[in-house]
């Protein structure tokens, strides 16, 4: 975790897929294989994935516009939500109908988009909670301390080791509620590591984290791969995706629209269309008439597009939305 690791590009894992990188492409060594997974909310088909494989030992990014079904897919894969149809396996084991806590025990842990640090537990207690197979977590065994004292000591040692890596060791006796938002993200990730998972699933690990902490979080994610874990994460920050992901899966409107290594995916027309916005070179202010600027051909095009979609308010809002996103990208 040297501070200069960000300066160098991390080593990318390549050769993950078999054949051409199209949506649903087979992987050399998949850890998750999902087929025909669908989930509808009322009339909306939130997730409709025909086939997807998540490679083992690599960092996979799941990207897509808001409402693309990324978090829903996350919830389905981790057992927090039940799909309408579909089958999926984790490490060769079928996971249909398996409750979330059992999925976690198999070595597939997740974090949440809205950080779930357990506020009125101390940082160290949060960490210890992550450890698996604790004798003292049985109600009857818990009454007799000698039965679990030794294991508790080992867990504490391991927790302190991980906390030190995440630079949270000095805060071990503080309530998790007293940590800053970014520190809570770190704590949630550190806690997930206590279970020695095979696959770590991070739902927007960078959301609400200041740039100073971003680098450290990135290093932590890269370290997971170094230690042999597979990582799947949802993220909106394109720089981060480009920087650390070995493989990128793009979702839009519940479907997987593209897959590939970061460089090629970002060139993909479908991705640019769905996610980056087709008119990212146009200033949003010009489109809305807020700023007077040269009415380039691009603006004319876009205005025509919007005219054409009058009544479909959400789709025009969507165009505005993606434009704002790319604007932010540019100013960074």
């Amino acid at each position: 975790m040297s501070s200069n690791s960000g300066a160098h590009s991390p080593v990318k894992t390549t050769g993950l897929h078999i054949g051409e990188a199209v949506p649903g492409v087979a992987k050399v060594d998949p850890i998750i294989i999902a087929d025909n997974v669908t989930r509808t909310f009322g009339g909306l088909k939130a997730v409709d994935v025909e086939h997807v494989e998540i490679p083992r030992g690599a960092i996979t990014a799941l990207i897509g516009p808001n409402g693309a079904g990324k978090t829903t897919l996350f919830n389905l894969l981790t057992g927090f939500d039940k799909p309408d149809t579909g089958t999926w396996t984790f490490d060769g084991t079928r996971l249909n109908g398996v409750p979330a806590f059992k999925v976690a025990r198999m070595g597939q842990v997740r974090t949440f988009q809205l950080t779930k640090a357990l506020g009125l537990l101390t940082v160290l207690e949060n960490m210890k909670l992550g450890a698996q197979k604790q004798t003292g977590e049985n109600m009857f065994a818990s009454l007799i301390k000698p039965l679990w004292r030794k294991q508790e000591g080992e867990i504490e040692e391991r927790a302190m080791e991980i906390l030190a890596r995440f630079k949270l060791d000095t805060k071990k006796d503080d309530f998790a509620a007293s940590l800053s938002g970014g520190q809570r993200k770190l704590l949630e990730m550190a806690r997930a590591l206590m279970s020695s998972p095979k696959l770590v699933m991070l739902d927007e690990p960078m959301a609400g984290v200041n740039p100073a902490l971003t680098q450290s979080l990135l290093d932590h994610i890269l370290n997971l791969k170094k230690e042999g874990m597979s990582v799947l994460f949802v993220e909106h920050d394109m720089h981060m995706v480009r920087h650390i992901a070995d493989w990128v899966i793009v979702m839009a409107e519940g479907r997987i629209v593209a897959e590939g290594d970061p460089e090629s995916v970002m060139q993909d027309a479908a991705v640019i269309d769905a996610y980056l916005g087709s008119h990212q070179d146009v200033d949003l202010g010009v489109v809305t008439g807020r700023v007077s600027g040269e009415n380039t051909a691009g603006v004319e095009d876009l205005l025509a597009d919007i005219e054409a979609e009058v009544g479909l308010t959400d789709s025009s809002a969507y165009i505005a939305d993606t434009n704002t996103d790319t604007q932010e990208e540019d100013t960074k």
């Binding site: 927090f80 779930k116 640090a117 537990l121 909670l129 003292g136 818990s142």
Partner: peptide, 20 residues
């Protein structure tokens, strides 16, 4: 540790579920 899990559930049961 049993009490720790219980207190964790009080704070956020989904987080505890995600920890197995």
């Amino acid at each position: 540790p049993w009490g720790r899990v219980l207190k964790g559930i009080r704070e956020d049961e989904d987080a505890v579920r995600a920890l197995g």
